[in-house]
Design a protein around this nucleic acid. Structure first.
Length: 425
RNA sequence: GUGGGCGUAGCUCAGCUGGUAGAGCUCCGGAUUGUGAUUCCGGCGGUCGUGGGUUCAAACCCCAUCGUCCACCCCA
């Protein structure tokens, strides 16, 4: 036997057993953003490497060591997108979507990062994201957050996620804070762990959310980010918090919340959970007012977030919140004798003409036991029994596979009505 | 990139101080020729991840390698 070929490490097949829950999740996401009037945008999976260097930041881990970068046949450096925001801005600029315009967009699709795979973290993973452009006030920040909160409600996981918010201030204010923080860290360098020493210069703000207890103790005396906000950002943040209060969205101000990507300013937020092991962030985002201009467009404010679909699916699975995921089949049609085959198949087609039910026809023969067993594994709610008697009488026997209802035999002409009444009462 | 755990049937796993491989589930058939997820019986299914070493003898011990999972890191 020839050697089998395996999928690439960290890139998973989504098997039939899983696609049901994925489609369920995707449906809810689409329906919810539609409630807010957001429009879908679809971007290419491959972009010029330069795009991510300029947006995410040259010295971030993502760009330095996690991107799938390769030379195209003509020598251009291309990269499999590690996130969606950069592409959305690029597309918006390229097509004039953002120029003096307001836009509320969403996207969904695969992203690629070459990290060591672990629970909730894969090399090909999927993000759903929302991006808004041209809106500078805290009202849109609040809208985007309330949209995400509505998602958790729709999935039934509100109890298992908490919102953390913070403000990074303007780019100028943050730069000033950064130099003070670096000065403090240099002064206490001896007490820092290796990771913090490394980050101290590459990405000093990231030292703030170190998991190391000793580092956290040291930071008690460090200059505080919230003391260095510019007045405008401080007011923006206060107004955002007021709006969240008003909307009944509870949150925790986490002054040490910073984001790993360079383009954020002012508002940042994360939805975290303790149900996913080490990968506790299920959704994160914030404001990135400088990015549009940085990528060559006319300056425009922007807010957005991204959520990890694998993490969401994992969470629903671990919390056993999968009852709402529909099976693939509503009605399973059996053919119990040779003379029933044609009648059964025309009945199947008739149902597909007259209803929107998912109808599966048994193929391959076998006795009734076997056929009903198939109906059961297909998770059908109804089995139609069709044998010699039914063919002769032009009837169909309807057997309810779940619940208490007694099986009944109806005329073929009544079948669609009977089933519609059962499935859409 | 750094640690640690685990690789045995399609799936989940057992297999003692080394003696040549087992269970449950799935699937197929039967008990039950028109009534499914219960029960009982039978059957299919394994170069024990791969390569090397030690040994009379290796799933078991040693080395290497690959895969996988969890954590660090990073982040959605």
């Amino acid at each position: 036997m020839a050697k089998t070929i395996q999928a690439i490490r960290g890139m998973n097949d989504c098997l039939p057993e899983q696609t049901g829950i994925w489609q369920y999740v995707e449906d809810i996401l689409r329906t919810t953003v539609a409630q807010y009037g957001y429009q879908e945008i679809r971007m290419p999976i491959v972009e010029s490497t330069e795009l991510f260097k300029r947006s995410i930041g040259e010295v971030t881990d993502i760009v330095e060591k996690e991107m799938y970068t390769f030379a195209d046949r003509n020598g251009d450096s291309l990269t499999l997108r590690p996130e969606g925001t950069a592409s959305a801005v690029r597309a918006g600029n390229q097509h004039g979507l953002i120029y003096n315009q307001q836009q509320r967009l969403w996207y969904m699709g695969p992203m690629f990062r070459h990290e060591r795979p672990q629970k909730g973290r894969y090399r090909q993973f999927h993000q759903f994201g929302v991006e808004t452009y041209g809106l500078a006030g805290p009202d849109i920040d609040a809208e985007v957050i309330s949209l995400s909160a509505r998602l958790w409600k729709a999935f039934g996981i509100s109890e298992h996620v908490t919102l953390e918010v913070n403000s990074l201030g303007s780019n100028a204010a943050r730069a000033e804070y950064k130099t003070k923080l670096i000065a403090f860290l240099e002064e206490h360098e001896a007490q820092l762990d290796e990771d913090s020493k490394r980050r101290m210069h590459s990405n000093p703000l990231r030292v703030l959310d170190s998991k190391n207890q000793d580092v956290q103790a040291l930071l008690e005396d460090a200059p505080k980010l919230q003391d260095h906000l510019d007045p405008e950002s401080a007011q923006h943040f206060t107004q955002l918090c007021e709006r969240l209060d008003h909307l009944g969205i509870s949150y925790r101000v986490n002054p040490k919340l910073v984001r790993g990507l360079d383009y954020y300013n002012a508002t940042v937020f994360e939805w975290v959970t303790d149900t996913l092991g080490a990968q506790g962030t299920i959704c994160a985002g914030g404001r990135y007012d400088g990015l549009v201009e940085q990528l060559g467009g006319k300056s425009a404010p922007a807010v957005g977030f991204a959520l990890g679909l694998e993490r969401l699916v994992l969470m629903l699975t671990e919390l056993s919140l999968t009852d709402a995921v529909p099976g693939a089949v509503d009605v399973y049609i059996t053919a119990l004798s040779e003379d029933a085959l044609l009648y059964a198949q025309t009945t199947a087609e008739m149902l597909r003409d007259e209803t929107r039910l998912r109808v599966q026809m048994h193929c391959g023969g076998g006795n009734m036991k076997k056929q009903l067993k198939r109906a059961d594994t297909a998770q059908a709610k109804v089995a139609l029994l069709i044998g010699t008697d039914e063919v002769q009488q032009q009837q169909v026997t309807v057997k309810y596979l779940r619940g208490e209802a007694e099986q009944i035999t109806v005329a073929s002409t009544e079948l669609s009505t009977t089933l519609n009444t059962f499935f859409n009462p």
